[in-house]
Design a protein around this nucleic acid. Sequence first.
DNA 1: TTCCTGAAAG
DNA 2: CTTTCAGGAA
Length: 362
Amino acid sequence: MPITHLLISWYHESCRPLPWRMTTNPYLIWISEVILQQTRVDQGNPYYQRFAERFPTVTALASASEADVLLQWQGLGYYSRARNLHKAARTIVDKYDCQLPGSSAELIKLSGIGPYTASAVASIAFKEPSPAIDGNVMRVMARYYSADSKVNSPELKKLCTIAIRVMMQNHHPGDVNQALMELGALICRPAAPMCTVCPIQQGCSSFSTGSQSKFPVPAQKAKPRNRYFVYLVLTGIEREAPYIVLRKRAKGDIWQGLHDFPLIETKETPTDSAITDSLLWKSLLPTVRPSLLHATYLKHQLTHQTLHCWFIRQSTENLSTGLNEQEYLKIPFDRLHHFPFPRLIQRYFELRRTMDNDDAPI
DNA sequence: TTCCTGAAAG
DNA sequence: CTTTCAGGAA
């Protein structure tokens, strides 16, 4: 029995009944692929369900505001995926007559669709024989061929492309792509692969020499840089309603389009005097003396940055001057759930709720 | 190179 | 408990 047959038979018997496998709707297949980029199935699944319900068509997605889309995406990370999804939906409505383009060559022109997603969608939705090569697939192939090229290298991608094209000659391209990804997720896992139940064990070079753990050869990883954030958590009461001051994050840095608090960033571990010296503190609270010792500290790890964050609570009664209302938003507590926040800020809110363990959400 | 998070590993 | 890891596009 040829290896590809064994793989595809295994896939048809053992594939998980995931919601996006229950549809032939190219739009929903696209959504699921974007959500699953850099995201595990268990984490992405509930997001897919809610997203598909809230935005059932390209038109629905294109009609929504970016903030609405980000709100649905809140907590998933890599928020550019949500912004790009929204942008691409508008392109599809404006330039493609509300229909998802039917080839990988056209799909790849859309925001947020790269070689992997273009091939995945085109192969699954349109039967195009285009290999979809992600980290899972590269791991499977590197082990199968004991390939020395590093993960993500052009060499390894080329090897994958050629081998998978051959597999697609006698099988549904979407099944071949999904079978390889499913094998990588369920059997040929990063650690402790389950070679004893692997459908393509008999052809696997690494298995034959017991060298599974040597492949794929890892790429070198960059070291994260440290950043130091001092957040001012300003609360007050206006017209009997408690509010908190938020700031929408701008372009050119992390979390763009999401919300956090007025921020003092320092180059090194902040000191109380560094805070009083900052422009923001001098303009808002020149008579108040900050204490980092009494601030809430949270550490937050991103791919390329380690954030060290202190949260200083102040009542806005102490404010010397008015806030710039263009930049800073006074938001009543009961409207906070309309705003998308990064996980760090959600964690801060959760922490406050636990510490106060009473009525106030802040 | 840069973007984020939750699960896994230590 | 803290740190590392997995996962594509621009």
